[in-house]
């Protein structure tokens, strides 16, 4: 095993076992300081039809901050050939008159496999959310940027039949990037948020879109008192 493979495993395996978090869809007005643990589940279109689970822990801090992990995978016949893990945090930066501005930062590890290639990527996601929050409901606008920073390409024999000279390895500069913008809303009751978010995805040059140029997800948060 080469050094790079060992480092790879050291970095990746924890992420796989930890799993990770649906991002930043939180009703800040209904989140109590004593609710330290939040379990997430979500499903919908996010590049493909995906479902996922996650966990957030509210930190003891002057402003509400959640440390979050999330894992999602597309529905399909093959389990775990495609998936995305995210780890990061979200902070409720400021509040005035029931309006909240929050921001999140995530590190991403994701994998894609089809008959031609296996792609493994490290990336990042930044998101800002601004909206109106009440204890029973909220509605907010969100804007995000998902950057695929460095990607490893490994090609199958089927691909090499077409192009034997293809070069496997880590590729830079950044191999991709997509902006997203949309709305999120939710209802809150008895320590549970029922969530929905929908929006559009455009590539980083604003001139084209992914094959499925939108996202739409249902989700739920279950908030647990410590």
């Amino acid at each position: 095993m080469t050094l790079s493979k060992k480092i790879f495993l050291l970095l990746i395996l924890p992420a796989l076992f930890i799993n990770a978090a649906h991002s930043q869809t939180i009703n800040w007005a209904s989140l109590g300081k004593e609710q330290r643990h939040i379990a997430h589940a979500h499903a919908g279109f996010d590049y493909a039809f995906v479902y996922g689970v996650g966990y957030s822990r509210q930190l003891l801090s002057p402003i509400p901050i959640l440390a979050t992990i999330d894992f999602s995978t597309p529905v399909g016949n093959k389990v775990l050939d495609d998936f995305k893990t995210k780890i990061g945090g979200v902070a409720d930066l400021c509040e005035f008159n029931n309006f909240h501005l929050s921001a999140s930062v995530y590190g991403i590890y994701r994998r894609y496999e089809n008959p031609m290639a296996v792609l493994q990527n490290f990336g990042s996601e930044f998101k800002g959310v601004f909206g109106f929050y009440q204890s029973k409901w909220f509605v907010a606008a969100e804007f995000g940027f998902d950057k695929a920073i460095v990607t490893h390409f490994e090609h199958s024999d089927a691909f090499k039949e077409n192009y034997p000279e293809v070069k496997n390895g880590w590729y830079q500069p950044a191999t991709g990037g997509n902006f997203s913008y949309g709305v999120q809303t939710g209802l809150s009751f008895d320590g549970v948020d029922a969530l929905f978010r929908i929006g559009k995805v455009v590539t980083q040059d604003f001139k084209s879109s992914p094959t499925i140029p939108f996202y739409a997800e249902f989700g739920t948060n279950i908030k647990i008192n410590r």
Binding site: N114, P115, L119, A148, G176, G177, T211
Partner: peptide
């Protein structure tokens, strides 16, 4: 099939690789 592997194979890579309009190789 919206819930099938074929759809994933076709579209999930959109978050890994994007190219600007003049980046033909990508």
């Amino acid at each position: 099939k919206y819930l099938g592997e074929s759809l994933n194979d076709a579209v999930y890579a959109d978050q890994f690789v994007t190219g600007k309009t003049d980046q033909h190789a990508i």
